[in-house]
Design a protein around this nucleic acid. Sequence first.
DNA 1: TCACTGACGGCTG
DNA 2: ACAGCCGCCAGTG
Length: 111
Amino acid sequence: MAEQRDYFEEVYEVVRLIPKGRVTTYGSIARYLSLRAGARMVGWAMNGCRNRPDVPAHRVVNSVGLLSGKHFFGGPTIMQQLLEDEGVRIEKDRVVDFKTLLWDPSLELAI
DNA sequence: TCACTGACGGCTG
DNA sequence: ACAGCCGCCAGTG
């Protein structure tokens, strides 16, 4: 179907705005877009972004900085390598200094 | 139609 | 700090 969920596109747009070397969370995106569906649907939206190379899904982690979606990158270390290549340190599938690197659209974009 | 699952998050003990 | 439970929406058996 040509008609994707509108919030899918909105999610992709926000994800594309994430600066290199920064990360954000599913919940932050959901809150920024006022998705009452919650973070789960953001994750579901990311599932559809696998066909979209321009969407840096690796910069999206869960609320504790855990690379919960690493297994969906074709390998258990792909997501980690992508992040480390941008200067984000990963330790035990978790973003180091996650709270500092967190890029919350609700704050940074200041809607 | 019901039940279970999932790239999550918040609340409670 | 940690573990468990519930709610949220969509897809699948």
